[in-house]
Nucleic acid binder design. Sequence first.
DNA 1: TAGATTGTTAATCGATTAACAATC
DNA 2: TAGATTGTTAATCGATTAACAATC
Lengths: 213, 213
Amino acid sequence: MDNREISQAVIGRLPRYFRYLGELKDEGIERISSQELSDIMKVTASQIRQDFNNFGGFGQQGYGYKVEYLYEEIGRILGLNKSHHLIIIGAGNLGQALANYMNFERRGFLFKGIFDKNPALYGTRIRNMRIRPMDEMETFVRESGIDIAVLTIPKTEAVAVAERLVEAGIRGIWNFAHVDLNVPEEIQVENVHLSDSLMKLTYNISRFENGEG
Amino acid sequence: MDNREISQAVIGRLPRYFRYLGELKDEGIERISSQELSDIMKVTASQIRQDFNNFGGFGQQGYGYKVEYLYEEIGRILGLNKSHHLIIIGAGNLGQALANYMNFERRGFLFKGIFDKNPALYGTRIRNMRIRPMDEMETFVRESGIDIAVLTIPKTEAVAVAERLVEAGIRGIWNFAHVDLNVPEEIQVENVHLSDSLMKLTYNISRFENGEG
DNA sequence: TAGATTGTTAATCGATTAACAATC
DNA sequence: TAGATTGTTAATCGATTAACAATC
């Protein structure tokens, strides 16, 4: 509807708003002002209002924001109103953990399959689903309407597998492989580079120890 | 040494430089200019030079940067020259996956122990290490000189456990629990909120489908 | 109505990019 | 030396914060 381009800085904050609003909702709180939310979340009230107003006015002057309404609107903006069909590529430790750990379903993420190139795993079942061979991947993506692939394979294989997924019609890739994928710009990629994250932590630890805290 | 405060925007880019430089080094490439690195990494040469110059000059006019030297300097800045002793709190799917999956040791991350509150797990061994009960945690942190704790426990427990870790003298927390921890500012926290990351992906998928790509 | 609080414009701040003098 | 490329200053761009008019 609205055609303004929203900055990724704003998008990056939406899930956190969503989480806090969900908690407020669960506590039965019905309304909240930007100032109250500011106190809880430790961001400025000004930023909160600016962020929300990127998507049109969700509040009411003199009153504040209705928690439940705002929660649902942000969920909608984040695409959580639609269900997403996802597969996991790579049934190693991390792939299996993600398959089991995440209660995706609660937010409309439907875990549809898991693939691996290792034949020794094909008997194994994860969440009552057999691990499938890689050569079934493209057909599966097409026939089951998969829109998201989770990549938990070594970086040496990730780039080529990503290209196959794109060819098969995937919409987004949640990339845990430690490599930058090369896909057309209409394919969304969200990287989770765990070792990068750990390095940021060690930087900040070192910095503090060197007396710059 | 240098007391300027480096922005987290810069820090966030360092691990990626480090990764590319490591790859160049492995390919036997000895020197690189900011322009060549710009072409490979798809960031501006200007930004590369500005980023590096936050830490003093690593290059040589008319020549460029020595790959290996730059790689090692950035590693040092990131705190990878020192070894880090880490424990994992929470031996669920994700905790076990992180214990097994990461080849931490390569970069000086020493996996020292894993803890859980579930007695049924105490017999289990992960990477030849028994899963320890939570009440041994503080003593273990103190006696084994643990500086980093990885939190892979439910958010309902994370805040309290983080406080115990701080009390025991932890320096940094790699937080996978979906909650904001409340720790003193000298304790470094790096959050990995997987569901937030997934929501950013669905936002971008939705946005594109709604014709804003 | 008066008070409260948003929506929005203006001001500030910080980060990125461009330009070029320094120098290898 | 001449050419190349950094280190660094200046210009631009974008994001955040402040201020306040609109309005519930």
